[in-house]
Design a protein around this nucleic acid. Structure first.
Lengths: 224, 224
DNA sequence: TCGCTTCGGTAACACTGTTTCTTATGAGAA
DNA sequence: TTCTCATAAGAAACAGTGTTACCGAAGCGA
């Protein structure tokens, strides 16, 4: 019912184009809006109550509609999860964008690493959904991987720049180095979230040490 | 029914001690045997069909008994998962024990790291259960953490030795360094299992680079 | 042998993701 | 305007999960 109300709001677009085409356009636009509404509802539940609370029934309940809608808009729960994943990528990318660029590339790397840690702390539910395997069935498809790469693009640019300036060896693929940093830092966050690294201070200490050790090796290559 | 047959097999122990005490002993021993049988059955399903196939009904079905047994022996599914976790710790410890000690501590670290990677490849289901968050509800308790620490004890000894010999800085806590290595390597394995690092060769390349970068930093401290 | 306790199996409950069936609504034709 | 029909949405069912309540049977002490 709420859905119908919303779908009436974009009827202005009916005044353009042929009747049949406009009808399809409106319907398309409606389903797009609907998708966004559902994703927003799911995202709210995700952040408020954690990944395990995001069930099809729970989302449809919050939407005030039946579960059928979710299956009409997204093929299955994984389809919805994928949209949430892309939302998470946006948030992560935003976090990275907020990091002020530094002329000191080493310092910039540490800043980006710290931003990644903070993302994990501030958006724990998103993090678990995206990288924590909270939805066991979820595997990143092409679109997800692209979203991921967009999110950590700043890191890729940084490493690439450092390689061009000779501050980091260019023997290894840029992507390989990025993956190395990403995976290592992720490991600390994930193990911490799993309860293996004690309290947050201890985990953060391990995290910072991981950053220091990695960056020291990476940037030390061309020193002597 | 099979269970009863098995429990009859250790009646010889009835011939020792007082009647009441022996009865309790026998019952205790039976439940211990039963627990072991159930864990073995669950472990078989885990390795043959993956973590998601390990359900209470599936295990009880393989045992030829009702689900009640599992809840009598282990409080809930998490209790069973915890036993499987400890089994995994044994397997991991065994893997580490098979690594020949090297007088070159750096090489020894690389060997242990490689053994950890191989464990993840050979016992993927165990790895996912233990560290992958395959059972979302599972958090390591005191016994689990102790089992973990026993498993990676070789790593702790190695780092401690290297610190004593001045090959690795002793400014940081030994446990912190161990956690740093463990978490970083875990991150690569976990991200690979999540499908984020491409095929196994690419992931292994990232893994080896992580080991090289970390160890180079750790062992480089006292060089100059 | 009798009574009791304990233990295990059946069936149910409350969930999950997913699908089927039915109904109602809304668009196009007469 | 009215009628037909296709589409879409909701209710309910299905198959699965972890977990628990009930109930009968079996084994034990007296």
């Amino acid at each position: 019912m709420k859905v119908i109300l919303i779908s009436n709001e974009d009827k202005p677009s009916l005044s353009t184009g042929r009747v049949l085409k406009t009808y399809q356009e409106a319907r398309l636009q409606n389903t797009e809006n609907l998708r966004k509404l559902v994703v927003d509802a799911a995202a709210a539940i995700l952040q408020e109550e954690g990944p395990e609370a995001v069930t099809v029934r729970r989302v449809s309940q919050k939407m005030g509609c039946s579960t059928k809608i979710i299956y009409s808009l997204f093929v299955n729960k994984e389809g919805l999860a994928q949209q949430l994943y892309l939302e998470g990528c946006k948030l992560l990318a935003q976090r990275f964008e907020e990091v002020p660029p530094s002329s000191d590339l080493l310092q910039h790397l540490l800043d980006l690493g710290e931003a990644f840690w903070q993302f994990g702390q501030d958006y724990t539910s998103y993090y678990k959904l995206m990288f924590g395997g909270a939805f066991a069935e979820f595997k990143p498809d092409e679109e997800s991987m692209q979203g991921t790469m967009t999110a950590i693009r700043r890191l890729l640019i940084l490493i690439s720049t450092a390689q061009q300036q000779g501050q980091i060896s260019d023997k290894e693929e840029t992507q390989t180095i990025v993956n190395t940093i990403w995976a290592s830092l992720h490991g600390v966050i994930h193990l911490y979230m799993g309860g293996f690294l004690g309290d947050v201070e201890a985990a953060h200490t391990v995290y910072k040490q991981t950053m220091v050790l990695l960056s020291r090796s990476l940037f030390a290559v061309s020193k002597p």
